[in-house]
Each structure stands twice: as C-alpha cells, then as structure tokens.
Simulated assay, not measured.
Amino acid sequence: MTILLLSGSPSSPSRSARLLNFIGERLNELGQRTVSLHVRDLPAQALLHADFSDPELLAAKALLAKAEAIVIATPIYKAAYSGLLKSFLDILPQDGLDGKIVLPVATGGSQSHMLALDYGLRPVLAALSARHILSSIYATDSQVVWTDGQGLQLDDAISRRVQDGTHLLLDSLVSLQRGKPAGQAVQSPILNGLPC
C-alpha cells in the first residue's frame, strides 16, 4: 500500500507541512509506505495554465493515481484552503480521487476557520470521486508549535486526533483491501446522497 502525503502549503517551512510530515512518520512507524508531494515544488506556469503536457505535472498526477490513500494538508487562509492546492486539484480529472481514502488535515489561526474543511475542501474531494473522506484533523497555530531545540510539539488534543486519524486510515485501507465497507470511515456526503 502507498499513502501519498500531499502538501498544499505555498510556504516552506509551514505548520501544515510539518503536521503532515509528523503524520507520515507515524504511518511509517506503523509499517506503511508513504511518498510526499509538495504542490509548491511543481512548475507554477504549468500549474496555473493547466499545461497537461508538462512532465512534472504528469508525474505528480501519476504519483497520486498510484496511491491507495491520501493525507492532504493545507493552511487555511481567509476561511478557505490554499489557492495553490486548489490549482492542483483543478487539473485532476473528474474522477481523480476515484477509489481513494482521503484524510484532510489543516492548520489555521483560530478555531473559527475549522469549518473551511467541511464547507470548502470536503465537497471538492467528493466531486473528485474520493471513495471515503475521513474525519478531518484541524489544528490552530498555537496547537502546532515548532522550536529548533524540540522540533514539532503538538497539543494533547491534536496528538490524539492524529493518533485516531492514522489508525482510522489504516483500518479503512485494510477494509478496502478485504472488499468490505471501510469500518468507521466517513463516506463523502455526495456519495451518500446527503447534502454537503
């Protein structure tokens, strides 16, 4: 199994990318193979002009296509996920996430931006035919702190959400491989026929 760690942050380093890397390390410790894709590393001209012939964009799309699951991380700006991430999602085909399990992760300045995941990102992931969209992990800037001496320090509540999210992701992958409905995975509202 391959899990893609997809970072939509335009800056480096960033809280959302560090949180994504932390989740990736936990998945590696649990025996999973992860690969990383940072949208900011893709050629901006090709991305903004949707140059589908660009070799780097083709390679990025192929990497996504091979993954069984995706952990997608973004900062929240002005109550929305990053424009950089939107540019990448826009170049994917309509079924670009078909059959995939997705764990959305975001960081923002305050709890008031938390719903950007549910009302902004989740419908786009569903429109791209994600099989299951798991419960999101949202952290405020004060809950994800980086220091050169201690590295990444997570608030206890976020640490628990990360643990729960990684285990749910793995349980969902195992269920998917066995051909059973993913245990407690939250199906996309659109796939369930429910309003977003």
Rank of each mutant, 00 (worst) to 15 (best):
M1R: 12
I3S: 02
L4R: 01
L4C: 07
L5I: 04
L5G: 00
L6K: 01
S7L: 04
G8A: 10
P10E: 01
A17R: 10
R18F: 03
R18E: 07
L20P: 01
F22D: 02
F22H: 15
F22R: 08
F22S: 08
G24T: 06
L27D: 03
L30H: 09
G31I: 03
G31K: 06
Q32N: 12
Q32K: 12
T34G: 01
T34N: 03
S36N: 10
L37K: 07
H38Y: 11
R40F: 06
D41F: 02
P43E: 08
P43F: 06
P43H: 08
A44V: 11
A46N: 03
L47A: 05
H49M: 12
A50R: 15
A50D: 11
D51A: 14
D51W: 11
D51P: 09
D51R: 14
F52E: 14
S53Y: 12
S53D: 15
P55N: 11
E56Q: 15
A60P: 02
A60D: 09
A60K: 00
A62H: 14
L64H: 03
A67I: 07
E68W: 00
E68Y: 08
E68V: 05
V71T: 01
I72M: 06
T74D: 00
T74P: 04
T74Q: 06
I76K: 07
I76H: 03
K78V: 09
S82I: 11
G83C: 09
L84E: 03
L84I: 13
S87H: 10
F88N: 04
F88R: 01
L89I: 11
L92P: 07
P93R: 08
P93T: 08
Q94L: 13
Q94V: 15
L97T: 12
D98V: 13
G99E: 11
K100N: 09
K100S: 09
I101A: 12
V102I: 15
L103V: 06
V105S: 00
V105A: 05
G108N: 00
S110T: 07
M114G: 05
L115D: 04
L117D: 02
Y119L: 08
R122S: 01
R122T: 14
V124K: 04
V124G: 00
V124L: 07
L125S: 05
A127P: 04
A130T: 13
R131W: 10
H132P: 02
I133N: 04
S136I: 00
Y138F: 15
A139W: 02
A139G: 09
T140V: 06
S142P: 08
Q143S: 10
V145L: 13
T147P: 12
D148F: 10
D148T: 11
G149Y: 12
Q150A: 15
L152W: 01
A157M: 09
A157H: 14
A157N: 10
S159I: 02
R160W: 08
R161M: 09
R161K: 13
R161V: 00
V162K: 07
D164P: 09
H167S: 06
H167N: 13
D171E: 14
D171C: 08
Q177F: 00
K180P: 03
P181W: 13
Q184W: 08
Q184P: 07
A185Q: 05
S188A: 15
S188K: 00
G193T: 11
G193S: 10
P195C: 06
P195W: 06
